[in-house]
Design a binder for these strands. Structure first.
Lengths: 338, 338
DNA sequence: GTGAAAGCGCTAACAC
DNA sequence: GTGTTAGCGCTTTCAC
C-alpha cells in the first residue's frame, strides 16, 4: 500500500490558502499573520504532513544535514564523539553524515567535497593534522566548517577545542606536585596542532619548575593503542631516567602501560603514567588511568552550536570556543620511589 | 568567489546533444549509443561536472544515502561497526547517515521515519530488542531494511548476523573441554533475539554434556560494562558454585571481571571468564579476554552488500547471511582448580 | 537513438 | 498579509 505522500499543495487545498502561505507557515518565515500560520500548522499536524527535505534543499533551502568527519576510529573517543554529536544535532532538527578520513589528508579533502556536493549545511571536522587547515581552506568560502581541535597560531579558523596547552601544563604540574622531577612526554605527534599545543604546555611547566623537558615523538599518523605500545616497547626500560610519563593521549598511555607491564615496570610504583583525553577505557578498574579530561559533552555541544550559528547567522558571536580541561585522578600516578 | 555550478544543461550545450541524452549518459541507463555516451562522459570529466544528488533524488532517482541506526554507543563495538560501514559504503558510492536509537524502540521507529523522509535508499539497523522487528514492520514496504542481529524464529526479515547459537555452543564446549562442569551464563537479555539465541546455544551444549544450565539475566536495556559490573557485584561471591562464567557480551564480561577483581576472585585461577563479540578492548593485555569473535568486517560487508542488492534488484539472492563465529583464546579461561 | 517537455515538492521573487 | 509564478537540476515518459 503505497499511499501518496502529502505535499504542500494538499495542505493549501485543505486550508484554502495559497501554496506560498503554507510554505511560509512551515518554514517559519515572516510575511504571514499569526492566525493563519497557526491554522496551517494545525492542519499539517492533523493531516500528518511533513515537509520533503529533498525538495526544500533543491529549492534553495537548508538540507538540515551536517557532515561529521573524524580522522579515525582507532581511538574510541571518536565513536563517542560522533554519537553524542548525532544525538545533540538531532535534538536541533539536524541529521549527521558520518565520514572517516582514515587519517589521510587526501580523503579528508575528498570527503568535504562530497559533503558540499550533498548540500550539507555545514561540516564539523576532527582534522587529521596541521595540513588539514590549509588543505581545506578552499572550501571555507563554500560552506561553514568548524574544526574540533586546536587552531593554527597564525590564522583563525572557527574551531572548538579543549585548552590543550593548559591541560598539559596542569598535568605536568600535578606530576611535579607529587614529587616527580624527571618527566617524559610520550607520543607527541609533531604534525598535529593539538599535540604541539600539548607539548608546549608540558615544556612551559617544565621551564617553570626548572626541569629538563624530554619528548619522544610518535611519527605515525595516528595515536592508536598499538602505536603507543610499539613506541614504548622500543623506548622504555627499567633503568629509564624518568619517574613519570605524560602520554600525549590516553591511547598512547594505555599502549605504554601494556609495554611497561611486559617489561615488569610496575605502575605506579616504578613509573607514574598520566594520560590525556579521558576515553571510556581509562575508567576500567584494570586500567584506572589518571588523565586530563576533554569534556566530551561540552566539546560536542559547542561544536554543534557553533556550526548552527554559522549556518543561520553567518556571523557568530564567537569565532572559537576553548574548553577547560580537568584533571581526573585515578590510580596510575604516585609519589616517586627513590 | 562563488562560481556557478555546472549543470546537465551546460554539458548538453558543450556536447551539442540534448538535455536528456546527458542524463542518460551519466546515469548509465540505456537508450543512447555507446559513442555519444563516451563523448558526453569525457566532456563531463574535462569540465569537472558532478551530478547534483539533491536534484536527482527529488526527480525520483536514488539518494545514494544509507541510514545506519545503532542501538547505542556504550559498546565500542558499535563505533567500529558504523565506521567500517561508512568506509565500505563510500567505496560503493554511498554515504551514511548515522543514528543512535539510544536503546529505545520509540527512537528507533522515529529514526526510521526520519530516514524515509530523507529519501535514504535503505537502512541498516542494529535493533534495540526483539520488539524492534514488529515495530518496524510497517516500514518494510516503504524501504529496504537490513537488520544486523538475529532473526525472529517465526518470521523472516532480511538480516545478517553471526551464528549466535553456534558461537555460544562452541564457547560452552570450549569451557567443558577445559574441564569445567558448572558454568554460569551471565547477562542474558531476554528481550533480545541475539541474546536468546546465544543462551539457547549455551543450554544446548549443557544438555549435550549433561550439565545443569544456570543463567543470570540482565534486565536493563543495554549490555554496558557498567551494567555488567553492577550485575556481577550483586551476584558474584568467592563461594559461588561455578568455576566458569560465560558472559553474553564482552562488555558484560569486562564488567564481571571488574567486580571479580574487587571481590578478590582471581581470574582465571578461581574463575574462568569467557566473552562474546571480541571488542577492541578485549585485546588489551590487562583484559586479555578469551572470547567468541563476531567478525566485524564480514558483518559490515555483508550488511552493505545485502542492502545494496535490495536497493538495486529488489530481489536479492539471499534473504539473510549467517557468519561463522570464531573462538579467540586469550588469558581468561583456564583449567578449573579443584 | 535522440530530443522535447512535464514534473518531483519546495523556496523566493514579485505582484496585488 | 497573501497569492502568482518562475525556477532549483534532475529523471522520465513520450514523440520523432
Amino acid at each position: 500500500m503505497q499511499t501518496k505522500r502529502l505535499t504542500i499543495y494538499d495542505i493549501a487545498k485543505a486550508t484554502n490558502v495559497s501554496y506560498a502561505s503554507v510554505s511560509r507557515a512551515i518554514s517559519g518565515r515572516p510575511g504571514i499573520s499569526q492566525k493563519t500560520r497557526e491554522y496551517i500548522l494545525e492542519t499539517c499536524e492533523k493531516l500528518g504532513y511533513t515537509a520533503n527535505i529533498t525538495a526544500r534543499t533543491l529549492a534553495g533551502g537548508q538540507s538540515k544535514l551536517i557532515g561529521f568527519v573524524v580522522s579515525g576510529m582507532d581511538n574510541p573517543f571518536m565513536g563517542e564523539l560522533s554519537s553524542q554529536a548525532e544525538i545533540y544535532a538531532r535534538e536541533k532538527g539536524y541529521n549527521l553524515i558520518l565520514c572517516n578520513s582514515m587519517a589521510q589528508n587526501k580523503h579528508e579533502t575528498e570527503l568535504v567535497s562530497i559533503l558540499i556536493n550533498r548540500k550539507v549545511d555545514g561540516v564539523i571536522i576532527v582534522p587529521v593534522n596541521s595540513n588539514s587547515y590549509t588543505a581545506l581552506e578552499k572550501y571555507l568560502s563554500q560552506i561553514p566548517i568548524v574544526f574540533i581541535g586546536d587552531n593554527l597560531p597564525e590564522k583563525t579558523y572557527t574551531h572548538v577545542s579543549v585548552d590543550n596547552y593548559l591541560g598539559a601544563f596542569i598535568g605536568t604540574e600535578y606530576l611535579v606536585s607529587l614529587g616527580h622531577s624527571s618527566i617524559l612526554y610520550f607520543g607527541n605527534r609533531p604534525q598535529s596542532f593539538t599535540h604541539r599545543n600539548r607539548s608546549a604546555g608540558y615544556i612551559a611547566a617544565c621551564k617553570k619548575h626548572k626541569l629538563q623537558p624530554a619528548i619522544i615523538d610518535n611519527m605515525s599518523s595516528t595515536s592508536s593503542i598499538e602505536n603507543g605500545y610499539m613506541l614504548a616497547k622500543k623506548n622504555f626500560s627499567a633503568d629509564m631516567p624518568y619517574t613519570a610519563v605524560f602520554a600525549a593521549t590516553d591511547t598512547m598511555a594505555i599502549g605504554a602501560i601494556q609495554a611497561a607491564d611486559e617489561k615488569k615496570i610496575r605502575i605506579p610504583c616504578d613509573l607514574s603514567v598520566l594520560g590525556f583525553d579521558n576515553i571510556s577505557i581509562s575508567r576500567l578498574s584494570r586500567i584506572n588511568l589518571t588523565t586530563i579530561e576533554q569534556p566530551l559533552d561540552k566539546l560536542v555541544i559547542s561544536a554543534i552550536d557553533l556550526i548552527l550559528q554559522l549556518v543561520h547567522d553567518s556571523e557568530p558571536e564567537r569565532e572559537n570556543i576553548i574548553i577547560q580541561p580537568n584533571l581526573i585522578i585515578r590510580g596510575t600516578c604516585a609519589i616517586p620511589q627513590k
